[in-house]
Each structure stands twice: as C-alpha cells, then as structure tokens.
Design a protein around this nucleic acid. Structure first.
Lengths: 153, 153
DNA sequence: CATTTAATTGTACTCATTACTAATTAAGAC
DNA sequence: GTCTTAATTAGTAATGAGTACAATTAAATG
C-alpha cells in the first residue's frame, strides 16, 4: 500500500466534506496541509500566485471561512492584526511568541485525552454544547530570549 | 475592617502598577472590575459617556492596550469582528457561543493549579518562556440550543 | 453536452484600530 | 499651593483587514 501524497489526501478531505472540488480549494488546502507556518491570507496569496496567477484575495477569504466552518482549519491571532490559519491534522495546541509573533505547534502523549476531558468538564459547568476549543500559551520563543538577552532561571 | 469598594480597589491596582491615575483609567478599570459582560470598546464607550461625556474612543483603546500590557486585562475574540475585554480577577477561562457570541467565565476547584501545570509542561516542550495563556472552549450556549431546537444527548 | 447551482473574481465598501498632533493634566519638587 | 514637565487625552485622519455585491466562470449531475 503506497503512501498517499498530500494532493490525494486533501482531495479526499474535500470530497468527504461534500465540498465542490475547485482548483482553488484544492491548492489552498494542500498548502495548509503541507506547511506548518500558520500563514495569513497574504502569505497564502503570495505563495500560491505562481500556481494560480488569478487567485483572488476574496477567494482565499471565502475558502478559509468555509474550511473553518467545517472544522478543517482553525483561526489564530498572534497580535499582528491579521488572522492566521492552521490545518488541524493531529491534536495540538499553540505557543505564541509575544515578541515576534512566531507560532509553534505543541503536543504531548495524551493531549487529545486531556483535551476531551477538559471539554467534558466545561460542558458540565457551563451548560454549553461544546464543539471545539483553542488553547494558546504565550511567552518568549527561544530566539527572542537570546535576542533580548534574557537568562532562563 | 470594612470591605473596600470597587473604586478603592481599582485605585490601588493602578498605583501598584505605577500607572498615572487619571479619571479615564480609573473609570474604565472600575467598569471592567464591576461588570462581567466582556465588553467591546463600543460597549464601554456607551456605558461611560454619561460619567465622562468627553471620553474619546482613542483613549479607551489606549487605556485598554496599557492594561493588557500590564496583564490586568485580557483580550477576547468572539467572532463579531471587535475585541472584547475582561478584567482578570480570579483564574478562569471562557466558553464562547458560536451562534450568538456570548462569553461566560468558567472555573473549577483546582483550575489555577492545572493551568500552571500546563504552562510548565509547555515550557519544557517548546522552550518558550511562558508568560500567560488563553483557554477557550467553543459551543452553543444553553439559550441557543433551545432557540435552534437542538436536543442534548 | 446541457442544465443547474455554486464558486470565483475584482471592486467598492465597511469599520475596527492606529497614527498623529495640539491641548490638557497628573505627579513631584520647591 | 505653585511650578515644571512629562505623560495622557481627544479629535481627526489614515490604515488595512475583512465583507458585500454582481457579473463571470466552472463543477456536478444525468
């Protein structure tokens, strides 16, 4: 059994979600699935304009909003004024640098279980019918600690 | 020992943070400390314009940004396009309704401890020097579940 | 293929937030 | 209390992310 490439995988994801398969959607989702750089709309636009020269910014907004509605992708704010996007393959959360805005994925064995437990507890406490969560941790990334001359205790 | 009122408490908070005490800052912080409605800049402006008729929107933005920098207040997005603010008295997190945007505070015995543990683990995994976090859970609030005719399992 | 229905695009627009500047004011020294 | 000065405020203009809209294009279905 050969390993599926990203294009095949994302094609299947689109079909499974009953989304009409357009080159734009396919390319955007493939970009998100193969990069872990938490791009903004601008970043995506710049990266894909070689592949699809007529790709419009409004299409990217539309497409990403559709993906977010289906839960394929999540939105992140890092304080630079624009929204960043992340394809949500395996359970993880984010550490965001308060100095340079860098976002990294964090996970550990059992995070998925902890997360479910947290959602269940929240449902009991609040009465909300939970559909998802964001966990973000803020701080200085290793590079900025060096750059700012900060010693770790 | 008499219980301090909100105005006295917030005055102390401003002084402790070495912030110059202005009526604007005092009134805005008192509003946040005595309301748990997670207001936007507009909401605050509308609520305080009786008390301070000349209060400018830019002052509210400046003031809130100052408070956020000092960690007195945190920012929240509920998807309506504007930023909401919350005075951070005791450790808690937020449940946000994906239908109406309502934000409620959630906490439980031991949440503060869990939170610290989570930050410590994140520091070890990512190398970040942690200064804070946001935990948010999304779902339908009880009112919207009824409104949308959804049965809870 | 032909039809139907949805997606894309570009432009115009909205509106939250920031930048900038002149006028005002809080805090501390005398 | 008055003075000094450095910070804050308020108003307006500017920015820029994101949305609305209408015409065009393209995917799905049979």
């Amino acid at each position: 059994m050969a390993t599926k490439n990203v294009a095949d995988q994302t094609l299947r994801v689109l079909k499974d979600n009953k989304l009409r398969v357009t080159p734009q959607r396919h390319v955007i989702l493939s970009y998100l699935a193969s990069h872990h750089n938490h791009p903004s709309v601008d970043t995506i636009h710049a990266a894909l304009s070689k592949e699809l020269p007529n790709l419009g910014a409004s299409t990217i907004y539309n497409t990403l909003n559709t993906f977010v509605e289906r839960g394929l992708v999540i939105e992140l704010q890092n304080g630079d004024g624009s929204t960043h996007y992340d394809y949500f393959g395996t359970p993880h959360y984010h550490a965001i640098c308060t100095n340079c805005g860098k976002i990294v994925d964090v996970s550990y064995e059992g995070f998925g279980k902890d997360e479910k437990e947290f959602e269940k507890r929240t449902a009991e406490l609040s009465g909300y019918m939970i559909s998802g969560n964001h966990m973000e941790v803020y701080g200085l990334c290793p590079e900025c600690q060096v750059k700012l001359g900060i010693k770790r205790p």
